[in-house]
């Protein structure tokens, strides 16, 4: 369980905070979606929830981050890494830059944890099979397509076997097939009790995956509720978030005088 309580965060060298009094709770096995317009503070919230702000990038955090009931304050970055991981949008910057093959790239995290070789290899193989990367394990991680690189980046996180996973725009580089694979991998993680927080533009994906959705605007939480409830909210578009296709289609049908409930039944 990952819990933020009254988090107000200010970057180093800046006078004003970017996040204001954000409270958020991601239970065990729960996938929470995070949406909001550009510059609403989504990426900052991801960094704060991962503990890297302030542990790595400095700045000032008021409020608390607790992981499974214990506070994350004062933990060093490698101690945080055993509890919570975060993945970013640009797959190029997530490469370690030292691995000759995809296998070594994915194995780097477990290796850094100081695990015995057998355990490292087992975790790496498991992460590879979850994202169906068997065909590219021997490839040079520098020479991958954007989608493949993003999948390798997510596999590298899975190999850490974290209890909490935060993903900032994980599918930005992915085609529909890649997006589906990532979705399945996240559902499998949640089924094992992992807490997941996913910032995403693709509300269709969130609609399918999430139990809850949080809407952020100007650094404040403006909606927090069940996925269906938040995504059906008629004011969602005014908050800078594009509703998923299901909602738009239902509305279009209703607008044209049809029966939205019949459409729901078909879609479900």
């Amino acid at each position: 369980m990952l819990e933020l309580n009254g988090a107000t965060y200010r970057y180093a060298g800046y006078a004003r905070p970017v996040l204001h009094e954000v409270s958020l709770r991601v239970g065990d096995g729960e996938i929470v979606g995070l949406v909001g317009p550009n510059d609403s503070g989504k990426s900052t919230l991801c960094l704060v929830a991962s503990g890297l702000a302030p542990a790595s990038i400095g700045g000032e955090l008021k409020g608390t981050l607790t992981l499974d009931g214990t506070t994350a304050a004062g933990l060093r970055t490698f101690e945080l890494a055993e509890r919570v991981v975060i993945g970013f949008q640009n797959p190029n910057t997530q490469r370690s830059g030292i691995a000759a093959t995809v296998f070594e790239e994915i194995a780097l995290g477990p290796m850094n944890l100081g695990l015995p070789v057998v355990e490292t290899v087992a975790r790496t193989r498991d992460a590879i099979s979850r994202l169906r990367l068997e065909a590219i394990v021997e490839r040079d991680p520098q020479r991958l397509s954007g989608g493949q690189a993003q999948l390798v980046g997510i596999a590298s996180l899975l190999a850490m076997r974290p209890r909490h996973v935060i993903l900032d725009e994980p599918t930005a580089q992915l085609d529909p097939e890649g997006t589906r694979l990532v979705g399945e991998a996240l559902e499998a993680l949640a089924a094992r009790g992992t807490s997941l927080l996913v910032a995403e533009h693709k509300t269709d994906l969130l609609d399918r995956l999430c139990s809850r959705i949080v809407v952020l605007d100007a650094g404040r939480v403006v909606r927090d509720g069940s996925a269906g409830g938040v995504l059906d909210d008629p004011e969602l578009r005014e908050l800078g978030v594009e509703p998923p296709a299901r909602v738009r289609l239902t509305r279009a049908v209703a607008h044209a005088g049809g029966d939205p409930r019949a459409l729901e039944a078909v879609l479900r």
Partner: peptide, 21 residues
């Protein structure tokens, strides 16, 4: 910046030795 965060997420800089593959 982003690469160093991504490395820290993967426990880079943890003291102690690693078991090389």
């Amino acid at each position: 910046e982003e690469r160093s965060l991504a490395l820290e997420v993967r426990a880079f800089g943890r003291p102690g030795r690693r078991h090389l593959l």
